[in-house]
């Protein structure tokens, strides 16, 4: 098998038909990803400290099955868990300033990377199954729940 030139950055040779249709080809380094125009990287990264982004585009395809986590629901759940932790701490510590500091400290300890961008682009495909998961957020949620339970046991709630 000849050595591939695609990954060295050379422009691959393409047939006349392919040039005419200019369909996106994942192996062609000269083609921009179809979702590149839609993403405002820098701005979103600054603004979205606790958000996750997911976009799925399916084009000219049939029998495509996509299973995905509801990222917004996961983010909401994460915020609810943080609020419950803050609530227990503020109820069980008299000094409200100290309570705030403890909450901040505890929550910051268990923060994993929270900026995720998932982009899935399926074109000209048949019989494809895709499952996407935001692992970072689910690990974070699990940890927050464990901390909440630890605190609840200490103040005799559970």
């Amino acid at each position: 098998m000849g050595e591939s030139r695609v990954w060295k950055g050379d422009k691959p040779e393409v047939g006349a038909d392919e040039v005419r249709s200019r369909k996106w080809n994942a192996l062609d380094p000269t083609m921009a990803h179809p979702l590149d125009d839609d993403v405002q990287d820098a701005e979103e990264k600054i603004q979205a400290i606790q958000k996750s982004f997911e976009s799925i585009i399916i084009k000219d395809s049939a029998d495509v099955e996509v299973t995905t986590t509801d990222t917004q629901a996961a983010v909401n759940l994460q915020v609810a868990l943080q609020a419950a932790i803050a609530l227990i701490i503020s109820l069980s510590i008299a000094d409200s300033e100290r309570a705030d500091e403890v909450t901040q400290d505890l929550v910051s300890k268990i923060k994993t990377s929270q900026i995720n961008q998932q982009q899935t682009y399926i074109e000209n495909s048949r019989g494809v199954k895709v499952t996407t998961t935001d692992t970072d957020i689910s690990v974070n949620i699990q940890l927050l729940l464990q901390v909440l339970i630890t605190l609840a046991v200490r103040v005799n709630i559970l």
Binding site: I93, V102, R154
Partner: peptide, 20 residues
């Protein structure tokens, strides 16, 4: 600081249990 069990009323504990 220490977490004080006594500061949380039985009613609050019940509400928190449900929430958790």
């Amino acid at each position: 600081v220490k977490l004080s069990r006594a500061r949380i009323s039985p009613r609050e504990k019940q509400q928190l249990r449900r929430l958790i």
